[in-house]
Design a protein around this nucleic acid. Structure first.
Lengths: 250, 250
DNA sequence: TAATATTTGTGCGTATGTATG
DNA sequence: CCATACATACGCACAAATATT
């Protein structure tokens, strides 16, 4: 039980159920590689003694993780880790969804969930260099890798320049390809802000996450080579499936 | 109640008490700036109707946040936000703690919590280009801005080159200044991986976070201008106090 | 092959915590 | 402050599947 990444104590009357605290620790220990190197979880009795709780409580934690797809329990044999490696999503001058995950997943594509045109909020108009309330196109998209949802993005474009852009995107499944059709041969990342928070209910559903899951949020501006803002986007990545790789020597 | 950042639903039987879910949402909405722009929280009755819970439950959430120092309740007047803005920590070729937060906090410094010399794990030896089990110096440090804990880092250095480095760091409160004393005039960031997870109990205590809080984790390698690895570090940032700003056009 | 130990699965009664009205 | 309902956690016992001797 040493070096399993399960060294934290559980806290009673904290507003978080013991089974959930234990589930969180096991999930964390697995994703950090400290647990499940042999693919096997310690027996329920050992875990209950380690945490000082009843075996039922450990079983509740395990049941939740089985439901999540993190663990698999087999009667009489034990409980095993369903290994899935974390994708590494590069943030660089040329940040492209499909290219970035090349070699990490066979099938990589983006899906258009919905689109709308409306007046820009102050944040969006400022980022795109447009007058307040100028019409902007909003795209709600989702990135998938091998059928697993990876990211959920909300993007904004100048509606006067990119009328019908949603069709090009829906057809190609790629911002890069759609921009090409609109006469933008290349574009670069101007800025990226990274933060993290709990997933909201919409992202929970879209990304198929369990309550309490964390999303990595990037707020980015892409611009032409000439420096004109093209796209403003907020992307939510499932934090247990993705890490962001910032290219060095910027 | 629109645009207050309190759009998420609360989930029953999720293992997280309703009062805690509501407290987490209010805390998040405040730190994201969506709530408390006017410094004022909506009345308890409005909140209880919004979340579909009893007013008692909202009061439990508010009481927890008052205890945390996030809110301040005044009988007969209302509940108010103790405003504090989120710091923006730049990730770039030259990533320095104190310089990065310049202009965002008056007092910025790092504290040495503890240090030790021991054999390198495979991850550390690989990052530093050392043989397995080579002796490395481990520094446990904390970054503070205006007296508030911001980050908690674990750093590794080649012990054979940096014997006594901990004294230079403890005296100067800066990795950059301490490296200077050891004949390293400049260094750059080779790579940065960004992920997010729930804070563990140690970080919870050091960063003075409440259970369930999120940390942004950066795993970074700094190297000399010549390209020799200098420092391997894992830094945990309190996600509700810090966002990471990745410099564009890498 | 048979006996025994290990491990997960199930049921039930009780006490306590959480949320409602 | 109280009564009620439900979720959480505990303790014990035993069944079912698998592993070990």
């Amino acid at each position: 039980m040493i070096g399993t990444g399960l060294e934290r104590e559980v806290t009673r009357r904290s507003g978080v159920a013991l089974w959930r605290q234990i589930a969180d620790q096991i999930r964390q220990a697995i994703s950090s590689g400290a647990l499940g190197a042999d693919g096997r979880l310690p027996p329920e009795l050992a875990l209950s003694e380690r945490f000082g709780v009843n075996r039922h409580t450990v079983r509740s934690a395990i049941a939740a993780l089985v439901q999540e797809g993190v663990l698999r329990a087999e009667q009489g044999r034990g409980t095993f880790v369903e290994t899935r490696r974390r994708l590494s999503y590069p943030i660089a001058a040329r940040t492209r969804f499909s290219e970035g995950l090349e070699g990490q997943a066979r099938d990589r594509h983006s899906i258009l969930l919905s689109h709308a045109v409306g007046p820009a909020s102050s944040r969006v108009s400022e980022a795109l260099g447009l007058p307040q309330d100028a019409p902007v196109l909003r795209l709600e998209t989702m990135g998938e890798a091998d059928g697993r949802p990876v990211s959920r993005a909300t993007s904004f474009f100048d509606a006067s320049c990119f009328a019908g852009f949603e069709n090009a995107f829906a057809r190609t499944g790629s911002i890069t390809a759609a921009l090409w059709e609109f006469g933008v041969p290349d574009y670069v990342r101007r800025s990226t802000l990274v933060s993290a928070r709990h997933a909201d209910s919409a992202d929970l559903a879209d990304l198929r996450l369990s309550p309490g899951a964390i999303v990595l949020v990037t707020v980015a501006i892409n611009e032409t080579l000439g420096g004109s803002p093209l796209q403003f986007s907020e992307t939510r990545f499932a934090a247990d499936r993705v890490e962001l790789s910032v290219s060095g020597r910027a």
